[in-house]
Write a protein that binds this DNA or RNA. Structure first.
Lengths: 204, 204
DNA sequence: AAAATAGTTGACTGAACGGTTAACTTGAGG
DNA sequence: CCTCAAGTTAACCGTTCAGTCAACTATTTT
């Protein structure tokens, strides 16, 4: 019935990348519409507000990202190696984005979350949710490593939170210093946090 | 000559707290002026732009904060204990602010830095500078601990950066989750990062 | 082909934005 | 006590902001 359209998907994608590249407050609805090739009226036909779009855009992005994380944290890979690869992929991903956008963009969820945390609770809650989901992958890997004996026993959930906090902090630092090299060799520190015996702990 | 005024100082203080409580983009020059009891004309008599004020306000805040950090990282205190106290003070400070403002505010430098990093280079650079200065305290403590043998040798600077990144990440998480309890027991993880032998490593 | 549905258009609103200006007031130094 | 620099005032500027709306078009169902 009626006609069809890809305007909604366009808006979601454009909004996510524009906000990631600058910030929530730094991007206007007009800009998003222009880049998406959609009129403002259509924007408000699909979304009730700018904040609603942001929440939907981050949800959509997670959906598209999930397969990649599933692959990265595949049961085929030894649990500790999953974590090492995850650290390396964070570095690679930021390097790519930095080349494309001209500056280090950091973690999109954390960036928008910390920006609007005290102002918009829906966006804050969405950022919290997505960070929690990311942490879950880490937690599962840690728990499995403990079970198979490659890691001493401990509270996997809390360890995952600490390790994830460290990586978020490093991403934050990389963005503020606009230097992707901050993200080299995250893995040894993550290993230290989760209590793995240091094999090749270079400097930290 | 001419009359004197405390308008400038008022603006600096009000701006810092307003931005910390919400965000750079979420606070308007009008709001700052109103809360400071200063007219807009006076604002632009003292500061060339909103961004200039922000830079000045964060600089001023550092000046006021420095004595506290000097005390916290006093040479009188054993170096590793300095770090423990620093972690505890971060928790206490956020708890106080959360009670006062009604929500967890996180690290002011990191919050504004990550918000405007890709948009305003002067503010970005100031945030970078202040974070680097904070890291220096940690680095000195680590280096001293290594010298006195309470910590194995290693690259103190890099260790400090990793430890500081972790704390920044935890502050970020606390803000997004709006839960100050995220910041309890940072010290054990910091100790793990810098390679201290775990005495009372509870869970992480 | 009529009717119902789905989506589009772009001009419009009023408030808020950062920033400017010229006239004015104040107070310390000579 | 006068001068003049330092600081204040409030109206004002053009722009941009998020959000609205009534008219319009394209597609599918009947």
């Amino acid at each position: 019935m009626g006609r069809t359209s890809d305007a909604k998907e366009k808006l979601l994608e454009v909004a996510f990348h524009l906000i990631w590249d600058s910030s929530y407050g730094g991007v206007s609805v007009d800009q998003i519409c222009e880049r998406a090739g959609v009129n403002k009226g259509s924007f408000y036909y699909y979304f009730g507000s700018k904040a609603d779009l942001a929440v939907a855009a981050y949800d959509e992005h997670w959906k598209q990202r999930q397969p990649e994380l599933d692959r990265l944290f595949s049961a085929q890979i030894p649990p500790l190696e999953r974590l090492t690869r995850w650290c390396e992929s964070a570095y690679e991903r930021q390097k790519e984005k930095a080349n494309k956008f001209g500056h280090v963009c950091g973690c999109p969820y954390a960036s928008i979350g910390v920006e609007v945390a005290t102002q918009d609770d829906k966006i804050r809650a969405k950022a919290e949710e997505l960070i929690a989901r990311g942490t879950k992958y880490v937690e599962t890997a840690i728990a499995e490593a403990q079970r198979e004996g490659s890691l001493p026993a401990g509270d996997a959930k809390q360890m995952a939170q600490q390790a994830y906090s460290f990586v978020l902090g490093a991403l934050l630092r990389a963005k503020i210093q606009n230097d992707v090299e901050v993200l080299r060799d995250l893995a040894p520190t993550v290993m230290a946090i989760i209590g793995a015996k240091s094999e090749t702990r270079v400097a930290a």
